[in-house]
Nucleic acid binder design. Structure first.
Lengths: 126, 126
DNA sequence: CGGCATCCTACGGGATACTG
DNA sequence: CAGTATCCCGTAGGATGCCG
């Protein structure tokens, strides 16, 4: 089952459609926090990600929910309490996100250096 | 050196800045083809990725070049020939991209099913 | 062949105000 | 608390035309 086929795995339209949902402005960050905390409430997420606006958080959560990556659970009424948690499908994401973060952490300095080199060369060009 | 620390690795502004460059509309696809072919010329890439426009390809390549992920090599003049290839920094990306593609390949069906469920529930709501 | 310059539009996403 | 509803703007990116 689920053999780790090393097939060409070219990026198809289907891949794009799925990845686009994932690689937008906020999804990774939201998923990251949900992975870390297990479950979070709406305003809990806002506190975790201060930079996100309410509208964007709602949109991101709805999209993730629609794609089955996140589960929305109404915990109680009066006062209303809603919990968000990673759905089974999204489980493997934690590793993916970590891999992404670790890669970028490792190469952050290289990239910064590359940018300076590029910008300097660019500036010298004029 | 470069210990595989399993630290919290929270997404920071620096991470975002780097990942945003990577997770945009076309970078992954361009990098994917460059990984696969080793080196490609401008119009070669266009043929590999028919959906991309010339402007977007140029912008993507410049950005990747600036971040040190891709190397631009002028092979010859008359006629002008330019090769693009993965830079050392970008090497580890192949694994990352493959991981991403394999994950999305594995869960494609689940996501599709989730969407239908969500949309049906949504439609029933009215 | 490998681009650059323009124009133009869709839409992601911010700010703000209101609600069950 | 957990959203919905508007308004608005910046910009990524498509279309088109031209160039060394």
């Amino acid at each position: 089952m689920h053999d780790t086929t090393t097939e060409p795995t070219t990026i198809t339209g289907a891949h794009r459609e799925l990845l686009d949902q994932l690689l937008d402005r906020w999804s990774l960050e939201v998923l990251d926090r949900l992975c870390e905390h297990g479950a979070l409430r709406f305003n809990g997420l806002r506190r975790e990600i201060p930079a996100i606006t309410q509208k964007s958080l709602t949109a991101t959560l709805r999209r993730l929910e629609r794609n089955g990556m996140v589960e929305r659970v109404v915990v109680s009424d009066r006062p209303v309490a809603v919990e968000y948690r990673i759905a089974p499908v999204g489980q493997g994401l934690q590793d993916l996100i970590d891999a992404l973060l670790q890669w970028s952490t490792r190469h952050m300095a290289d990239v910064e250096a590359a940018r300076e080199r590029y910008d300097d060369a660019e500036a010298a060009r004029e």
